[in-house]
Nucleic acid binder design. Structure first.
Lengths: 206, 206
DNA sequence: GAAACTATCTTTAGAGT
DNA sequence: TACTCTAAAGATAGTTT
């Protein structure tokens, strides 16, 4: 090899504001960067003591997830599903969330997120075993494979939520006459406080 | 300038397997790395055409989120919020977040996530304005302040979900007699698809 | 005290195996 | 297909403004 001729071209710049055209490149990049993202997330957790959940759907629609904490939660769920007996621990997780001043709905969201992840995985596992479920929509798999315990719990929450929403709807109906619909501009108001990477926007809520 | 006299020490290595001891360092690191994580996530979305959601709870329990897609939802909300004329407060609270696209239940998950975030923020804003609501539970604030549109939508989804859950419960009831409780090991099943960084585990669902 | 800077550390694109 | 290697691109810890 010529000394001036580097052994490889090394890392090349790519335009991160464009989708990779090649199917193969996209797959490779997805794999590499997903790992990178998980690692970053993991480090954020350990360095700052945060809790984190990442959900990714690949170009082909495959779901991937990363979360901290969750080994315990997922493990507990597996145990629960297998033996189903401990409300204690289950509620303990919820209480822990509450104590962290995460709002109730958010807590439920996290809970559901876990459901989804767990059931999704279990669905896949079962699918591998039976192959029969493979073509069913993901959402059905998830719901249809909820444990009795989780289904009851989820149902209870949904009922409660629904009641509150119905109240809200009643409220809105009652106030409908006095509710004018005004319209404002986005750009003018949002520009000073919102920004994005590559045209995608995000928010922090303080 | 003398090249040997560096202006700064530049980036120093830190141990990513340990929590930052200093409260201040932790806060700074959290802020910087959260941005970095969002950026990585964003790039992954654009490069590979994936759909993504990230939820982070800061050490103090504050929720942060990032998702792709959903700019439209946010945009509509900004419009809505702008009609209320307290844009200054709104801007002060807003920071950043990104959105792209996702699968069925996850789409709903993101939707709810947005609901939560939006309502939480709006709840806070209103609380600042009126002070009266401040002592009400967050969850009530959120539900009670849902727009008619969102409330209807959320309700519709809940009804559908509920129907599926009821089906599942019926299924479980019917199968109860024939349902032996099989027990499997966690490690055995999960090991082939889970691994981790620094003790935090994640999974891929194939 | 947030934003900018900069030297260094970390990630990763492309190529090879 | 999945690792490994290399060097450039990119992220960021500590500092300065």
């Amino acid at each position: 090899m010529d000394k001036n001729n580097k052994q490889t071209k090394g890392r090349q710049r790519i335009d991160t504001s464009k989708r990779r055209e090649s199917e193969e490149d996209r797959l490779i990049t997805f794999s590499k960067r997903r790992s990178g993202l998980y690692k970053k997330g993991s480090e954020l957790c350990t360095l700052c003591g945060t809790q984190l959940a990442i959900l990714i759907f690949s170009p082909s629609g495959k779901p991937f997830s990363f979360a901290h904490p969750n080994i315990e939660v997922i493990a507990r769920r597996v145990l629960e599903t297998n033996t189903r007996s401990d409300d204690q621990d289950y509620n303990g997780v919820m209480d822990a969330c509450r104590r962290h001043s995460i709002g109730e709905l958010n807590e439920q969201l996290t809970l559901i997120s876990n459901e989804v992840e767990y059931e999704k995985e279990r669905g896949t596992k079962l699918a591998q075993a039976t192959k029969a479920r493979q073509n069913r929509p993901l959402c059905e798999q998830k719901i249809d494979e909820l444990s009795d315990y989780d289904a009851q719990k989820l149902k209870a929450w949904l009922l409660e939520l629904q009641a509150r929403i119905n109240n809200r709807l009643d409220e809105l109906n009652a106030a409908q006459a006095t509710h004018p619909s005004a319209v404002g501009t986005i750009g003018g108001n949002a520009s000073s406080s919102s920004y994005g990477y590559g045209g995608i926007h995000f928010k922090n809520f303080h």
